[in-house]
């Protein structure tokens, strides 16, 4: 996994799974995947990480769904990914704000820059995955 210059910033590959399930199974599937991902974070990385994962991924799934439904395709796949990643960070920071206090505000601009690049990456990979998944489904049906 490439090391990003911001501590604790990750590429968001698990969010890719949430995005893909949101697109294939709808809002219910997306939120279930997000909740399960948070449960996994809770088991492997503890309560704080679990809560941060929960608030981040639930919020970002919901906002991505809203944008997909309502933006009349003004944003591209990259834009959806960026919106998801930035909102994910906002959700996580809300928990971090309660746990650590307002010193986390100094972290925000670095996280947003990381989110723009990570989100562009997950957005583009998600669009490729969706094309692959739907062509696989079409082959099955024949």
């Amino acid at each position: 996994m490439p090391e990003l210059p911001v501590p604790d910033a990750k590429l968001g590959l698990s969010n890719l799974a949430v995005m893909t399930s949101l697109c294939t199974d709808g809002i219910t599937g997306g939120l279930c995947t997000a909740a399960f991902k948070a449960f996994f974070a809770l088991l492997t990385r503890g309560l704080t990480a679990g809560l941060m994962s929960f608030s981040g991924s639930m919020l970002s799934t919901f906002v991505m769904w809203l944008v997909l439904k309502c933006d009349r395709r003004k944003f591209g796949c990259v834009g959806i990914g960026i919106i998801g990643a930035v909102v994910h960070n906002i959700g996580q920071l809300m928990i971090a704000f309660f746990v650590i206090g307002n010193t986390v505000r100094y972290y925000v601009p670095y996280l947003i820059i990381a989110a723009v690049f990570a989100g562009a990456f997950t957005g583009i990979v998600n669009s490729v995955l969706i094309i692959l998944v739907s062509s696989a489904e079409n082959t099955d049906h024949r």
Binding site: G76, I80, V116, A120, I130
Partner: peptide, 26 residues
């Protein structure tokens, strides 16, 4: 939503503007 994603462009001017604004603010 799957069709929604497939029918979208990979990226649009709105994406570029969004990324630009976010990076500038940061």
């Amino acid at each position: 939503l799957s069709d929604n994603i497939r029918n979208r462009k990979k990226f649009t001017a709105f994406d570029v503007a969004l990324a630009f604004v976010l990076i500038c603010v940061s």
